[in-house]
Nucleic acid binder design. Structure first.
Lengths: 143, 143
DNA sequence: CTTCTATTTGCAAACGATTTGCAATTGCAT
DNA sequence: ATGCAATTGCAAATCGTTTGCAAATAGAAG
């Protein structure tokens, strides 16, 4: 058996390195992020946090997400028609396919597409700072 | 000389077909859209509208955009970190490169990327309903 | 283990973009 | 010209997110 290892980021080390305090609310939120297999939004993170420590506030969730985003520990995705959703910045770059029926997010990666984007930008006289590729679709009917 | 013809959509006909009334505010907004070479947001459309008829309200701009989007006459783009921007749904599909310094939008099109997206979705068992490909970049320093 | 202070918190209020309820206005079929 | 449903402007409401502020606390220093 060969299970793919899903690396868990060491947020606490990252925070310490950024010179910020490791508080109880932050520890709770970091824990939630560490073992989130999905792409939760702030409200969902808040719900999960409150289940652990009901004194945590939504503001703190937002502030912590901003902090983590700032140090590059998480990525924020503004998918269509909804609040921002977050994911640990672990592993390598990928884009997203969003199931418009369930909201599920599937990650994918295409070197070829990345190359083509570079090529296009170059031809237009630009250098890409970042990009966004999102496919919105529904499960294909089994045939 | 061979100038590319930029088709101007006949919004009024489209509206009439949709069975909605052609009012003064709508006529003004449609005129603005018809000869907008850029991708203005609601506030910008509002400003341009007020310059023509100062009794037009922002709500009406929003309502009209929603209406036009509903009948497929315009496209709404939610680029990063800003209000939605609109463009006439004329010509064929294209994606966007956004100049992060100026906010300028450059349109581009890549059959190859479209194909690859289809391929990826199919492999994942999905059919694409729509997609979003945005490149954010800055002008490459002339060398 | 106390003391100290800058950082962080929770709360409520402010925010920007967009939508909505409502009474007044207006297109347009008659 | 008339009548009424569609549309408007306005103000207030909404949603996701941010912010000011006074109270709480992490964690360095003793």
């Amino acid at each position: 058996m060969n299970q793919t290892v899903i690396p868990k980021p060491d947020y606490e080390a990252a925070l310490r390195e950024a010179g910020v305090r490791i508080t109880r609310p932050r520890r709770v939120i970091l824990g939630i992020l560490s073992d989130a297999g999905d792409h939760p939004d702030a409200m969902e993170i808040f719900r999960r946090a409150v289940a652990i420590d009901n004194s945590i506030s939504l503001s703190t969730v937002y502030r912590t997400m901003k902090l983590l985003e700032g140090i590059g520990a998480i990525h924020r995705h503004a998918f269509e028609g909804g609040p921002s959703r977050f994911e640990p910045a672990v592993g390598d770059h990928h884009d997203h396919l969003i199931d418009i029926e369930t909201g599920d997010v599937i990650e994918f990666q295409s070197d070829r597409i990345e190359e083509l984007q570079q090529e296009i930008a170059r031809e237009l006289g630009y250098e890409i700072v970042h990009h966004r590729l999102e496919l919105y679709g529904r499960k294909r009917r089994r045939r």
